[in-house]
Amino acid sequence: MTATPSTPSPVLPATPPPATPPPGRPPTPAAPGSRAVLQGSDVLRVVDRIAHELLEKTGGGQDVVLMGIPTRGTTLARRLAARMAAFEGATVPTGSLDVTLYRDDLRLKRPRALEPTAVPSGGVDGRLVVLVDDVLFSGRTVRAALDALADLGRPRAVQLAVLVDRGHRELPIRADYVGKNIPTSLGESVHVLLQEVDGRDAVLLGAAGEQR
C-alpha cells in the first residue's frame, strides 16, 4: 500500500457518506508513527467486495440482518446494507449491538458509557444475523456480541463480517467475511477510520499503546 492520497473512482456510484463528520468529532488525524494500510478508495473497494460476498453467500441477502458493533461496526453495517441495495436491490435491515455489558474485561477499566443497541423492527428470531465490526483481534468482542445477541432472540444462524482481521485470536472465533488480512505484531495497533465518524476512510497501522 502507498500512502499517497487517492481520489475515489468507484465502479458504481458509492453511497455518499456525509461530507463532514458529525459535530463534536473532528477529523481523526493519523497517530504519529502510524501509516495507512488502506485508504480512501481502498476502503470503499473492500466494503464493496464484502457486500458482494454477502449477497452471494446469503442468496441475495435473504433473511439477513446486519448487526454492527458500535461505533464503526454500526457504520460499516449501514454501508454494507446500502451497497447490497445498490448492487441487487436487496433490502437488508441493519441494527447495532452494544456489547459493553457483556465484555469480560470490564474490570480492567473504568466503566464505559454504553453505545446504542438497536434491533430492527423484524427482530432477530429466525434470521441470519451477520455481526459487523471494524477489526477482528482477540475475538473477545465477538464472544461478547454472541452473548448479547443470544439475549435478544434466537437467530437461525450467526456470521461475522470484519473489515480487517489482524490475527492474534484468543478464542476459537473466525470471520466469515474479511475485507483484508493484516498481519500485525501484538505491539502494533490498527485503527479503522470511516468518513462518517472520522472524516475520512483509512486503515492505519501504528506503534504500540494505541490499540483499542
Binding site: L101, L106, L114, T117, A118, D151
Partner: peptide, 24 residues
C-alpha cells in the same frame, strides 16, 4: 448526564432483550 444516558441505554436493552438479565 452519563448516569441518565446509561439508564436510557439499559432501559432500551432491557426492553429489547428476551432475557432480562445482563451478565455485567
Amino acid at each position: 448526564t452519563l448516569v441518565l444516558d446509561t439508564a436510557e441505554e439499559l432501559a432500551r436493552v432491557s426492553q429489547a432483550a428476551t432475557v432480562k438479565k445482563l451478565p455485567t
